[in-house]
Design a binder for these strands. Structure first.
Lengths: 344, 344
DNA sequence: ATTAGCACTCATTAATTGAGACTGCCAGTT
DNA sequence: AACTGGCAGTCTCAATTAATGAGTGCTAAT
């Protein structure tokens, strides 16, 4: 369904209705729009327009004789056609810059934690961030470091300076020598490929090396994933307390539902990786996201770059959120983060 | 104040009162105790005893003409004198064992995450776990791995097979050679010491090495803490949804307060490290913990061992918690965890 | 095409009431 | 002396009712 044929008045009414509803969380009536926004029309006229908008499915009444509230589609139209990004205040911009750059060089985990925190704080929503998709990274080198009997730390370094490590348990019958040989072979054949490619094709690539199968198994085993983001690919979710006070979560059941999802992380992670994969700001509204537990929530996300690999940050909150503001904030934060992570 | 002089009847009444209150969350009256627990006494008599207990500060009335609820001191006396650990069911024991041992060898972070999850699930409280205090670990070796221009991964291995790594940013003017020299010196002088010792005394220990001060600064700088637990010393907190449904958190303010503390982690971490430092099960009740935001909460914690280093796990919930059961569960879980982490 | 006016619908709030859960205490019983 | 039955008094909680008022849809007039 396309809504391009909304006339000027309908657009204005929808816009004002959303603006007011976002602020107050109360259904908004015709009088409010007529008076507060001085449209030069009487409430009765506004009412007629509202009826039209309701028939289009953009707004609805919670019950007879209440004002109207936007539907998911209503927000969608607003976001697609009516939204004008609201610039950040000097103060907000400064805080974001400051937090992010002051944490430079203290590890991805800390930076991302702080980023989601500042997002949550400034927006009064839930701030989220997810580490760069290591899978996209181009391997520069892998090292094995014996740590103790039967334990080896594998360090995977990626072009442009990211690295992660994972502790492997190996059968103690495996010799250090073998391991060194393995390291050498891997470093001859794999650098230049992305970790994703490596994971998918490692089996064939090592078929002719004559290395011990026991050892090989260790690296092809999809359970123990050196090649995948796992250990650091954690989601940071900050600002749960901001959600609690939102009237849409007054219902305990609903709140429980949402908190469960946030805590469990896996489905959220997937959502973030799929929905928010693309470039630039992406807005996902209510039912557009596949997780039913958060069908009353929207997300505003963006990607950032860390040495050629991209990750995602954003905010999550009730569909009734100040999109115009959030778009600017998320966008600015993503850009700042990319900057901070790219210069040495 | 000592309560050893409570007579038999007073003890029984307190015990039953707590038992009933823990189940129902409603103030419990004299009738209930007299009838449900068949003490062979009339409610009037119980009432007298309850008055005595109230004067001792062990129980109190929320308002005139309500039943009584236990006070923090009441719980304390119960825990110290009356508590009999309630054995786990076969099922519970099996689930715990299963979760913990199935995650063996997949990294500390994952095991601990699962542990706090299972604790939360089984107890319907908040499960928490905190990684071993690296600071106690005895250094076996340190390695530097160049990752990219100006970036080096430092891998700190500790006796008994734990290791952690941290990404260092170094001035690009520092030569690889210097770094290797540094690595060599460190590995000559430091192994055998605990990381804590190293951190405190590193300055003097390296005073006579003639290494470049720029390089030295990197390691003595208390900001960038190779020697301390930081990156993995995260707290896992799982089961927030369990708290939400507890009647003591019906008040949104209170809930917000608690969630803030859980999310912020730092103060919680400190609490866990100080209060729960000792051996065996430690129970902290309500106001006994210094964080005012969770003064209505109790903790049951225990330590576990991972290669000679100890960490903490436990549960947190409203003071009205089934201590007898929790003690057994936490204790069993800690033991299972220690086992799983000690055998190779 | 607008708008004023009006009848009608519901949600929300406050006030009132009644029922019920306990207690504390006293007087009587064992 | 220890216990108990009984009763008056207190306070919470749930249910009911009534009043208020916000907001709509429709119609007739401009």
């Amino acid at each position: 369904m396309s809504f391009e044929n909304l006339n000027e008045r309908e657009r204005k009414v929808l816009e004002h209705l959303i603006e007011h509803y976002v602020q107050t969380a109360d259904p908004v009536g015709s009088r409010v729009i007529a008076n507060k926004y001085r449209m030069g029309l009487s409430p009765a006229t506004i009412r007629n327009t509202m009826q039209d908008l309701e028939e289009l499915g953009l707004i609805k009444q919670p019950h007879t004789s209440a004002g109207r509230v936007p539907t998911d589609s209503g927000y969608r139209v607003f976001v697609d056609m009516l939204l004008k990004p609201a610039p950040l205040t000097k103060n907000e911009a400064a805080r974001i810059k400051e937090i992010i750059s002051s944490r430079k060089g203290r590890g991805m985990d800390i930076i991302l934690g702080q980023t989601s925190k500042i997002l949550g704080d400034i927006t009064s929503q839930l701030g989220v961030s997810i580490a760069p998709r290591f899978e996209e990274g181009i391997l520069s080198r892998i090292n094995f470091i014996p740590v103790a009997e039967g334990k080896v730390l594998a360090v995977v370094s990626v072009k442009s300076g990211l690295a992660h490590s994972i502790l492997l348990e190996i059968e103690s019958s495996i010799q250090i020598k073998e391991l060194q040989k393995m390291e050498q072979v891997l470093n001859e054949r794999l650098p230049g490929l992305t970790l994703g490619d490596i994971r998918r094709t490692l089996g064939e690539r090592l078929a002719d090396t004559g290395l011990s199968p026991r050892l090989l198994k260790l690296f092809i085993n999809p359970e123990i994933d050196i090649w995948v983001d796992d250990p650091d690919q954690k989601i940071h979710v900050t600002g749960t307390e901001n959600l609690i006070s939102q009237p849409e979560f007054a219902d305990r059941e609903k709140l429980t539902e949402v908190i469960k999802i946030l805590e469990e992380q896996n489905s959220l992670k997937e959502l973030l990786l799929t929905k928010a994969g693309g470039q630039g700001i992406i807005i996902t509204i209510g039912n557009e996201n596949p997780i039913v537990g958060i069908k009353d929530c929207s997300m505003v996300t963006s990607t950032y770059q860390a040495g050629g690999i991209s990750g995602t940050i954003g905010v999550i909150g009730p569909t009734r959120m100040p999109y115009s503001k959030l778009v600017s904030i998320v966008e600015f934060t993503a850009r700042s983060l990319t900057e901070a992570l790219s210069d040495s």
